[in-house]
């Protein structure tokens, strides 16, 4: 019963992540890459994504506080962020990156500051959602269940 309940929770959480646009099809592709040869693939990708994103956010914050603002540097960091969010399927983060780069290109300081706040918010949201998802998967496996196949 416990396993069934957890599996149901996992399905609901996963569905909501797609419906609310947090994740796109790329995340499904990643799930398909996880198999017996590579059982912790998603966990690894999520961990790297979180570490790199936090480092980039700290750099962006610092760069935007340093006069004169180095917009080229900002663009380079956001390019990194866009790449990794796109690789993991975090499409809301990716969407903010697109706006952010446009602000960096036009050297729009106000726009960049707003985009930074927005990207922080989106990043911490998706990070906690992905952690919740992975934790549910762990709980299901620990309880002897198997992971539901998502369509």
């Amino acid at each position: 019963m416990e396993v069934l309940r957890l599996q149901q929770q996992l399905i609901e959480l996963t569905n909501s992540l797609f419906q609310e646009g947090f994740l796109d099809d790329q995340f499904t592709q990643l799930q398909m890459l996880q198999d017996a040869n590579n059982p912790d693939f998603i966990q690894e990708v999520v961990t790297l994504f979180a570490e790199d994103s936090e480092r980039i956010l700290a750099e962006l914050t610092k760069t935007l506080e340093t006069e004169p603002i180095d917009f080229k540097r900002i663009d380079a960091y956001v390019h990194q962020f866009k790449g990794s969010s796109s690789s993991i399927g975090a499409q809301r983060v990716k969407a903010v990156c697109v706006d952010f780069r446009a602000y960096a290109e036009t050297e729009n300081r106000e726009g960049c500051c707003q985009a930074l706040q927005q990207i922080k918010q989106e990043f911490f949201l998706i990070k906690s959602k992905l952690e919740a998802l992975l934790q549910l998967e762990q709980q299901i496996l620990a309880a002897g269940g198997s992971l539901p196949v998502m369509e």
Partner: peptide, 11 residues
């Protein structure tokens, strides 16, 4: 970018 790297390698 190491996230891109691990995802491309996985694919």
């Amino acid at each position: 970018n190491r996230v891109n790297r691990i995802v491309a390698a996985g694919a």
